[in-house]
């Protein structure tokens, strides 16, 4: 990879961390982001350190490396969010992520936290999506369309076909929703962390 590709990799990792954390932060009655003690940049840096120091074994193309590191970092985020004290700290106690321990109770199992169908059924997450799309009919329709696919994970073309719009329009709405949820999640998190 050349230097430009490394800089792009950092941005991609950080955007993924932002998305993952803003979804996690929007889910549930309280916000988890500030309390986990790590910022999106910290997750990206950690992943680059693991890669840079050969703690991760990978051989493949630069494109595949980006996908691989993104996956590794997402797993690291999930692993942090599984820890018991992240939940405890949602009630006001602040702890660093490195001090956290695993929670094996069924309540925090990631399949209930991060599976798309569970997410779309979660009241707090739906409320966050509602707030993000309140002034935008196209976004509201997009969110509704995802909710309509009860048993499957819809591809962009499935949603486009359902809505009768070009596939590119779905990509546009996805990017918009990501930006808005990012802004929403982080603003709310900061607001809470100041309290």
């Amino acid at each position: 990879m050349n230097e430009t590709e490394y800089r792009r990799l950092l941005k991609i990792l950080t955007v993924r961390a932002c998305r993952a954390l803003s979804v996690a932060a929007s889910k549930g009655a309280t916000w988890v982001l500030a309390e986990s003690g790590k910022s999106p940049a910290d997750y990206a840096a950690e992943t680059l350190i693991r890669w840079g120091t050969n703690q991760l074994q990978f051989s493949g193309t630069p494109e595949a490396l980006v996908a691989y590191l993104t996956k590794v970092m997402t797993n690291a985020i999930i692993s942090t969010l599984r820890k018991r004290e992240v939940k405890t700290s949602r009630n006001g106690k602040t702890m660093l992520a490195d001090e956290l321990t695993e929670d094996s109770s069924s309540q925090s199992k990631p399949e209930t936290l991060f599976d798309l169908r569970s997410l779309m059924r979660d009241d707090a997450f739906r409320e966050a999506l509602r707030q993000c799309s309140a002034d935008d009919d196209a976004l509201q329709v997009y969110v509704l369309a995802i909710e309509m696919f009860e048993d499957t994970i819809p591809a962009a073309r499935d949603i486009a076909s359902l809505l009768g719009v070009p596939e590119t329009e779905i990509y546009k709405r996805r990017r918009k929703l990501a930006r808005r949820l990012g802004k929403h999640g982080f603003t709310a998190s900061r607001r809470r962390s100041k309290v």
Binding site: D115, L116, P154, R175, A178, R179
Partner: peptide, 27 residues
């Protein structure tokens, strides 16, 4: 779980690697 979460994020927001540099900066 990681795969399931990634699938959720990609369905909702699309793939990060498909964004241009300007779009990444914007997000």
């Amino acid at each position: 779980h990681g795969e399931s979460f990634e699938e959720s994020l990609e369905t909702l927001f699309g793939r990060e690697a498909e964004l241009t540099d300007e779009e990444l900066d914007e997000e």
